[in-house]
Design a protein around this nucleic acid. Structure first.
Lengths: 122, 122
DNA sequence: CGCTACTGACTACATCTGTAGTTTCATCGA
DNA sequence: TCGATGAAACTACAGATGTAGTCAGTAGCG
């Protein structure tokens, strides 16, 4: 059971999953482009993530270095599971069907998924 | 752009998507098993959904009848889209891959999805 | 015709989220 | 050594969410 991570917190996690450990300032720099949050906001989010034990802190002189304690794959698997459970009764097929109907699936996507499924069976 | 629907509100929607119109009491009865909410809670959620114009109200004597204004398919498509965008950069393949790795896909699921994809191409 | 019971409307309130401002403490340079 | 600077800690605050309680009005029963 990975703690619930909010949307804003998730942005921070994505940064730390790309590179860690980072200081608060470094994280802020890396999200600044996309989100334009202030340094204070980033620090608040880092504190909340640390409180949830989703990231770890390590003292480096007067600063902290932050690193994920949860792997991206683990987190995504959990969240995906919940999503499919809640909205599609746990079945992936209807989800794929919906995305397909909404033209979210290109021919390349379809080929990729077919390839993936073939590997799963093999 | 369908308004944001919270988890609790979504439960109400599922009930109304199965059968509508329904009175508040009827909705409460139908969610009671699963969630055990009080009638008041259900009424609050119905009000919030009505305020968002996600459901419509129709007077029936001294009561209201509630019906969805948004189709389930439309809603699911939107939510799925956002989900895949946010967590998988818009690509469905990694999502399917994650579910597969987590053993969420049975052989039957795989066959079903393959079938679906074949239809999409055909 | 008046009271009761059911219904919607309004109010409540703690927690979570997004987005910071302010304070305090320590450190590094002059 | 002392002040400026930078970092974390603490505080703030409005809106969303989960979960109801209370009030007020009306329709139907006696």
């Amino acid at each position: 059971m990975v703690e619930r991570i909010s949307d804003a917190e998730h942005e921070i996690m994505e940064v730390l999953w790309i590179k860690a450990p980072l200081t608060a300032t470094e994280v802020a720099d890396r999200v600044a482009d996309a989100k334009g949050w202030s340094l204070q906001t980033v620090k608040t989010l880092l504190s909340r993530l640390a409180a949830k034990a989703v990231i770890g802190t390590e003292r480096d002189g007067r600063r902290f270095l932050y690193s994920p304690l949860v792997e991206r794959d683990t987190y995504l698997a959990g969240v995906s599971r919940k999503f499919v459970d809640r909205l599609f009764g746990g079945k992936v097929t209807p989800l794929v069907a919906h995305l397909a109907e909404a033209d979210e699936l290109s021919d390349d996507d379809i080929r990729e998924i077919e390839e993936l499924l073939r590997e799963l069976k093999g």
